[in-house]
């Protein structure tokens, strides 16, 4: 399955990667190269094989419903590019 520039631009939009006009055709070619290579999987007979659900087939106890965390506002905000009044601040979202 090949992608075109339009698809690459759409995928970049979904992934929130701003691409320049020059980057798009370049990436289109690269992705087609890689996708062409991984397309060989389509030839594998998978019939009614169940997809792998978990790497190791384990079960384990769930967490008990107790408060063990939180109250670390300064840690949460410590690396923020912009924090104000205890909040993370971002460019204004217009709804």
């Amino acid at each position: 399955m090949a992608v075109d520039d339009k698809m690459v631009a759409r995928v970049a939009g979904l992934a929130r990667l701003t691409l320049s006009a020059q980057e798009v055709p370049h990436l289109t070619a690269e992705l087609n190269n890689i996708l062409g290579w991984i397309d060989q999987l389509q030839a594998v007979e998978t019939g009614d094989v169940q997809p792998m659900a978990t790497v190791m087939p384990i079960t384990r106890d769930w967490r008990a419903d107790v408060v063990t965390d939180g109250a670390i506002q300064s840690d949460v905000l410590a690396n923020a590019p912009e924090a104000r009044h205890g909040f993370f601040a971002v460019p204004k979202v217009i709804e």
Partner: peptide, 18 residues
């Protein structure tokens, strides 16, 4: 994300998203 990720990471994000 455009400025922060390098070419290989972007490539894989694009493949993975697709």
């Amino acid at each position: 994300r455009a400025a922060g990720f390098g070419a290989e990471v972007k490539r894989r994000i694009m493949i993975g998203t697709y």
